[in-house]
């Protein structure tokens, strides 16, 4: 309560002048936002707006420097009618859904495990992070080799265990190639899920568990009624980030299968890439990128809505 007093005193001594400059002061404080705002406009709003602008024109390689026309939403109609769009959207949803489900469940289990105290825990925990630290190019190439049909170690293992009789060409079979890439992506994502959940778990107050124990709650009841509700904000953030990140995965699939065989593991980012940089249909590529952007915006909106509900209930 002392501080404001001192400030008003100071202003009084400065006299009438300060009252006059008040308008300028609030104006000048906006100026401090300018660099940040400039950055946002330059590096975020402009590319997004430009991408959208590109998606309503008819730019391709032949008229890159020539006449370009405004075509409205014709590109969107073309894309929605394209069979490849349906395939890649479905694959993207399967890829994201399964990846997140397994990453989260396994990550959560490991987080609960590493939340206990046992010898060697810290070393194990940092080793787990390796999967997250490794460049995707390396992970993808490793999994490509491991899942190879002719000489892959994965087939060797399964055959030795007697699970399969004949080697399976995991990445060159239409039925399995998408799941091969999902497997690699799950492996990459587990450590991230684990670390975020673990940091959430460690901030949970111990006394709640002690009280529950005294009341005779089982381990499972403790998990469902204490851990899960308290972890809700962490889980929401994690799932949101996970979905956005996984939906955009490009390099992993590009290296492992290139979207093949035929289009069995073709996802939206690959679709956008192929249109923009292989067949040079820049406007169509921008259209797919815009559609992906809208899907992710919609998901983010759901997340924000859930977060607000969360805050209201607290």
């Amino acid at each position: 309560m002392q501080q404001p007093e001192v400030r008003t005193m100071g202003q009084k001594t400065m006299g009438i002048k300060s009252v006059k400059t008040k308008g300028i002061r609030s104006w000048s404080s906006y100026l401090f936002v300018l660099p940040g705002l400039g950055f946002l406009v330059f590096f975020m709003f402009f590319p997004i707006a430009y991408n959208f602008w590109l998606s309503v024109k008819d730019v391709k390689v032949t008229n890159l420097n020539g006449e370009q026309h405004f075509v409205g939403f014709a590109n969107y109609a073309t894309i929605f009618k394209d069979e490849l769009f349906t395939i890649s959207l479905t694959n993207s949803i399967i890829f994201t859904g399964l990846s997140i489900l397994f990453q989260f469940v396994i990550g959560f289990a490991l987080a609960l495990f590493f939340n206990k105290r046992f010898p060697g825990r810290d070393i194990m925990r940092s080793l787990m992070l390796l999967a997250w630290l490794m460049p995707i190019v390396i992970t993808a190439t490793l999994f490509k080799w491991m899942l190879a049909g002719d000489y892959g170690v994965f087939n060797y293992l399964l055959q030795t265990l007697g699970v399969i009789q004949q080697p399976v060409s995991w990445l060159t079979e239409a039925d399995t190639s998408l799941y091969g890439t999902i497997l690699a992506n799950i492996w990459i994502g587990i450590p991230f899920n684990m670390i975020i959940l673990l940091s959430g778990l460690q901030s949970l107050p111990d006394h709640l568990y002690e009280a529950a124990k005294l009341d005779g709650a089982s381990r499972f009841q403790q998990f469902v009624h204490i851990t899960l509700p308290l972890m809700r904000p962490t889980i929401l953030v994690l799932l949101m980030l996970g979905v956005i990140y996984t939906f955009k995965v490009f390099d992993l699939i590009f290296i492992m299968t290139g979207g093949g065989p035929v289009n069995a593991s073709f996802v939206l980012p690959l679709y956008a890439y192929q249109l923009s940089f292989i067949t040079f249909d820049f406007s169509l590529g921008a259209t797919v990128a815009s559609i992906m952007f809208l899907i992710l915006i919609a998901l983010s909106a759901v997340y924000l809505w859930m977060l607000r509900k969360e805050e209201q209930t607290l």
Partner: peptide
Amino acid sequence: SGAMSKEIIN
């Protein structure tokens, strides 16, 4: 016929 691997598509 097994003279070429079907893995060639990758």
